[in-house]
Structure formats: C-alpha cells, structure tokens
Design a protein around this nucleic acid. Structure first.
Length: 442
RNA sequence: CGGGGCGUAGCGCAGCCUGGUAGCGCAUCUGGUUUGGGACCAGAGGGUCGUAGGUUCAAAUCCUACCGCCCCGACCA
C-alpha cells in the first residue's frame, strides 16, 4: 500500500471533543469517524485493526470447539416477551416498529435468539454440549455514550452461548471459555485479570469479568499483584485441568469497587502485594443455568425425561478492544504508539526520502515493499514529499511496530531497520524479513 | 434525566461583550527551495457562521425556540 493512495485521513492535531487517549488517537489517525453520539463509521486503518482482533477471537473460539453462526441484528420482540426481558431490559434496548406496526428491536444481546434457534433443532442430550458464537453488531442505547468507542451505543462484539445437560458439564463449558479468553488476550499482548463479578441483568450464579489495567478505565479494581504471574500455558481442555486453572486464579483476591471489602482485602492480601488501580472490562462470562431455557422451553430428552438445558454466555468487546489496545500501548507524552504485531494495521512501514530530482530513495523503497509483500508482510510505503522528520513523527503515531527508513543515499545491500521503541540498525533485507517473521508467530 | 459548556472552512481556534456583510494557524491545490524528529517562499481554492423565527436600514454578533455535540453526575454485560 502507498500511503498517498490510502484512505487514512490523518490530522495534525487532536479534535477537541476527545478526552481520553484512545479516542483522541483514533480520530487523529482517521481510524473512525463519528456518525452521531456513540455511533461510528470505521475507516480503513481502524477497520483493519478490528478485523484482526476479530480473527484472533474467532480462532480461539474455534479451538475450544465453539461453532460460529451469524444471527441478525434485528430481533422480534416476541422471544423477549417469552423470556420476560422485554419489560425488564429497560431503556437501553432500542425498540422499533416496522411498517406492519410489529414491535422489533436492535439486539443488545442474543440469549433469547440463540435459545430459540437451539430449541428448534436440538432434542437429544446426545447432541450436547453445544457451544455457539457469533461476532455481530449490538446496540445498547446508553444514557451517556462517551470515550469514543469505549462506551458507545453501537458496538462490535463476540458473544458465545453454551448448552449443557447439567451443572457439572455446564461448568466445564464455562471453564473452556475461561481458558479461551486468557489465550485470546495473551495473543493481543494484553494482561487481563479474571475477576469474580456481579451477574447484572443477565442473571445467574457464576461470573467473571476480564479486566485489563489502564488509567483511563472505568472500573476501579483491587487485586493481588501475584495474579499476573499465573500461567495458563499448560492447561488442557479437560475438566480437571480447567478446574485447577480457575482455582489458581481464584486464590488471588481481585474485585471491582462494586464488591470491594477493605477488611477482606487487607486480610487476604499482604500490603506489598496490594494493587489498587483502574481497568477496562474487555470480556465477561456468565453461567445462568436454566434462566432462559425454562421460560422458553429449551429442553433435551434423556431416559424418557425432559431436561431444561443449562446455559452460559460469554462476551468479548471486539470494537472496545481496539480502544483498549491504544490505552495500553500509546505513550501520549512522547507521542509514540506501538500496536502488537498480531493486530497492527500494517506490519512494516517504509519511510522514504522523496524529492522530484532524486527518486533513488523511493525506487529503493518500492523494491523493499515488493520484497516484503511477496513474503506476506503487510507494508505501507510513505511516498509523499513531506519532510522526512514530519514523516517520522507521523509514523510514531500510526504505531506500526517495524519501520524501514530509507534516506537520501540508501545503501544498496543494507536497510535501516527499526523496531518502535528501539534504536535502528543497518541489516540486510533478509535479516529484517526474518526478524519480522519471528515476531509474527503468535 | 439533573448540572455545566460548546456549535464560525477538513482539524484547531479568533471575531460576539460594544450589530456594518468573515479572519488566523494547520491541512488541501500550483510553482520553487528544502528534508534524520511536525520546513521555507510565492500564489490559489474552500464557509447558507448548527436550524428556524424575531428585532433592526443592517445580524456570526441581540432575542426566542428547536437540533446537535462535549464534560460532571445518575446509569452501565
């Protein structure tokens, strides 16, 4: 990609309406464009990042045996009346009437819809467990949308649903998602803490919020620092192993300000291990048993008897993660952003000296670009005639983790290669390629 | 929804108090000189001043209503 041909409308200053760094940077880099309060269009730079996050989430869902479906954004009110939530959900649900005057709604979540799909198809306990997920737009009519895409009204979310015969199996399903979430966030280079949480309007008995640390987060959290040292790499998808994993996390105190009990915090956690900070909720998992299956009559047969299936639901805020990654990786003071390679909009930036009279730098840049692209490295080449220093500043913000700088009299055999945050070095193009490849493995 | 603020060119702002027909920086376009941490010179284009009504010879400016956006709070998978 040539930067001059891209649709990446960069600004030289921050739009005044943005206050937190992810919102500021996303507007300045032209990643998103606000359409109305809490509703955004995603422009190429932002969309690429979101799609890469989506793909990582998808792969980790598939790994635990979840199957992808796609449910509509618009739902009928009838199933919500069946579950009883049409009245309970309140003003956050966007209710619409169609031309036949039927009540429809823009889905804020999909428990009812997926339960309806399930009950029409699955009749035998032999088909269990079922883990279904989709990645789809949701709408919640927030009283006050804010912070750009962090708390918006229309947002992109992965939500999964599990169906099991009994509590024990259901807990196994729950734990699969627990592990899947830890792996997903790790691939995004985020350290997320699972915290025991309130179940809210979803209802149920078991719930964890996954929180990443960030000063601009909306949740105040109290935790034992040692929770960050828990390693989840060696756990397998079997009941015992996953139970152990959850216990390993749950031994450490970790709660939000809704649940903080200072006495308990001081008793359970040594002063030196106490961490009191703010975080962003990027995932939330719930177990709620037969809360929906019972009123909606989603049951399977076993031994001549009917069993209401035991359900859980599991959300990851895909669009919110774009903002969360910026909150975690953008050094606003020095104006330096660095995306994890796994989700960076491009993997390598090629920054060329450009002049009408001297095209050697650009020509060299195009060779480098072709070589990297042939080797499946996504590149963007800045071929504009802006000052070199201006380009450097600009790319500091765009956050592509690797840069190849091509100045006035480029070396024929070596390129100036830089990983953001480190000094540049002169190496061969093959070495640069291998270095990027080694960092891509994830 | 309670409290506060704002709406003037793509972005950041001035002008409003004291009414006289719109300006600055950045960005964009042309030409030239530059180029390693956000250059320089010369020229050009771009705005129904959020919308509607009112006052006035005259409204970005004063008055009224509405709309939109931001912040604090309440709210929040």
């Amino acid at each position: 990609m040539f930067l001059s041909k891209s649709f990446i409308p960069l600004l030289k200053n921050y739009p005044s309406e943005a206050k937190i760094k992810s919102h500021k940077l996303m507007l300045r880099l032209g990643m998103i464009k606000q359409s109305s309060a809490g509703i955004y269009s995603w422009l190429p730079l932002g969309f690429k990042v979101m799609k890469k996050i989506e793909q990582i989430v998808r792969e980790e869902q598939n790994k635990i045996g979840a199957q992808e479906i796609l449910m509509p954004t618009i739902q009928s009110s009838e199933i919500w009346k069946e579950s009883g939530r049409y009245e309970d959900y309140g003003e956050e649900m966007l209710r619409i009437k169609d031309r036949q005057n039927r009540e429809i709604l823009y889905g804020p979540t999909n428990e009812e819809l997926v339960t309806d799909i399930f009950r029409n198809s699955i009749k035998s306990y032999k088909s269990l467990p079922q883990l279904l997920y989709h990645i789809q737009w949701k709408f919640r009519d927030e009283l006050r949308p804010r912070f750009g895409i962090m708390r918006c009204r229309e947002f992109f979310m992965k939500d999964a649903y599990s169906f099991d015969l009994n509590d024990d199996d259901a807990e196994f399903s729950y734990n699969k998602f627990f592990l899947s979430y830890l792996k997903t966030f790790k691939r995004l280079e985020l350290s997320a803490i699972p915290m025991t949480a309130e179940t809210g309007p979803i209802g149920g008995s078991l719930s964890h919020e996954f929180i990443i640390l960030a000063e601009t987060g909306e949740s105040k959290i109290y935790t034992d620092k040692r929770i960050f040292e828990v390693n989840h790499d060696n756990y397998k998808l079997d009941k015992e192993s996953l139970k152990k994993l959850r216990l390993k996390y749950e031994q450490f105190y970790a709660v939000t300000d809704e649940k903080i009990d200072n006495k308990e915090f001081n008793n359970k956690v040594d002063k030196k291990n106490q961490l009191e900070t703010k975080g962003i909720e990027v995932g939330h998992i719930f177990y709620f048993g037969d809360k929906y299956s019972k009123p909606m009559n989603a049951a399977v047969d076993k031994d001549g008897k009917k069993f209401f299936v035991k359900m859980g639901s599991y959300g990851i805020g895909v669009s919110r993660l774009v903002g969360a990654l910026i909150e975690a990786n953008f050094d606003e003071k020095n104006e330096v952003m660095k995306w994890p390679v796994s989700v960076s909009p491009f993997e390598c930036a090629i920054i060329c000296f450009a002049s009408k009279n001297d095209t050697t730098s650009i020509e060299m840049g195009i060779k480098v670009k072709n070589f990297l692209e042939q080797n499946n490295i996504e590149t963007v080449l800045d071929d504009s005639d802006e000052n070199f220093s201006g380009k450097l500043k600009k790319f500091n913000l765009i956050g592509i983790p690797f840069q190849i700088l091509i100045g006035k009299n480029p070396d024929k055999n070596k390129v100036e290669f830089k990983e953001v945050g480190n000094n540049s070095k002169m190496i061969s193009l093959e070495e640069a390629l291998n270095f990027i490849k080694s960092k891509k493995i994830n």
